[in-house]
Design a binder for these strands. Structure first.
Lengths: 214, 214
DNA sequence: CGCAATGTACGAACTAGTGAGTTCACGTTA
DNA sequence: TAACGTGAACTCACTAGTTCGTACATTGCG
């Protein structure tokens, strides 16, 4: 009757699982309340472990917050890295990228909130993290090549670079989530209303293509 | 030697001045540290008066924060109300509006930060403020008429309303300020770099016009 | 005097972080 | 193989320091 390993009892002492559990809870807490508003005690309570473990594994509130940021950014970069637009026509590649960002941000509101929060703090934690500082977006290289192809074919204007395009896409996709609440409170329109989703998704693509091919 | 009134000594007891002083300091503190991060004691110290006065005039931290929001929004709405685009061609009117927003946001980073912070808190304070909830943007009416004129002249597409256009403008202008720090930390580009200012200002106008007239 | 405006000192509640000790898996030794 | 040693994972109670808010005293104008 001896269960040597990989049973449920073994899960009581699992470093990775405990760390991941803490990070999951902390992500929600920080995204919800902000860095200052988040309470370590609250995170501890929602975890299956104790507050002491948070300090044991992460060192402190700030390091935990940085760990949350690092994991959130890594997840997104990994997803972006999968995108392959080399085989598409420049116009379609732009739309593909814009729509991927559109969908991704909509599916990850916590990440957008963490970014907003980090900006309130002047990105000081990102700047201090060796993992995050200067974490270049792999999509930018692909985007640069797409723009070059479109330009060489005489279809794209020449006075925009990949970062400009990325900025426009991010602006629209991030604003839609980050400023959802004040926008709704003041203008009475929920930017995430499913009824307007397709319209906005297409609008972003049109905006970019009409501009680039003007 | 008796200075009866309206001298400098009288300034010791000036309700409006004291309130304005507190609001000024509180605006900077809340914009800088967020609602939870802001410290009432800190605000009091930077004021020429005391903490007691904050509670005397505003009631508490939350009411002070709401007062800050109300004043900030009012200032912007007042400025927007001055804009008159009825005499301009639709295309020029759109550009005018976009550039006014562009300039205004750049000149008022504190306001953008307050909006970001309020969104972190799900706009709950705006929703509860009778002054702010449903405070319709007067510019929207003008924008609606501009779009109608452009559409009637067969120059503008018909599948966009004023709020869509406003959303695009705000997205770009707000993102530029609100996400400045994470953008710089990760991509190494300061979106507020004066060298790129004119390029971005024109880009926003082109983006809108190329889209609307496509 | 009477009342609005103001200053000071204090306290109750909260919050990040720690000190000190316990449990458990596992390898080593007698 | 059974007692022992060891270090990682874990628990709990506690503390030192904040932070919002208030009780109370004071000032000075009409």
């Amino acid at each position: 009757m001896a269960a040597p390993s990989s049973s449920e009892a073994e899960r009581q002492r699992d470093k990775d699982r405990t760390r991941a559990d803490i990070l999951d809870v902390a992500t929600r807490e920080f995204a919800d309340k902000g860095y200052t508003g988040a309470r370590v005690d609250e995170i501890a309570e929602r975890t299956s472990t104790t507050k002491r473990m948070i300090y044991y594994y992460f060192g402190g509130k700030e390091q935990l917050y940085v760990a949350v940021l690092e994991r959130a950014y890594s997840a997104i970069r990994a997803l972006e890295a999968e995108l392959d637009v080399e085989h598409l026509e420049p116009e379609d590649a732009i739309r593909e990228l814009a729509e991927l960002t559109f969908d991704h941000h909509e599916a990850n509101p916590d990440f957008i909130r963490l970014v907003s929060i980090e900006n309130i703090h002047h990105a000081e934690h990102i700047a201090r993290s060796e993992i995050l500082a200067g974490l270049a977006n792999p999509v930018l290289d692909g985007l640069t090549r797409v723009l070059a192809r479109g330009r060489e074919a005489g279809r794209f204007r020449a006075d925009v670079d990949a970062l400009d395009v990325h900025q426009v896409i991010s602006s629209f996709c991030v604003f839609r989530l980050a400023n959802r609440h004040t926008f709704a409170a003041i203008f009475g329109r929920d930017m995430l209303d499913p009824a307007r989703r397709e319209h906005h998704r297409r609008m972003l693509g049109d905006l970019l293509i009409n501009y680039l091919t003007a």
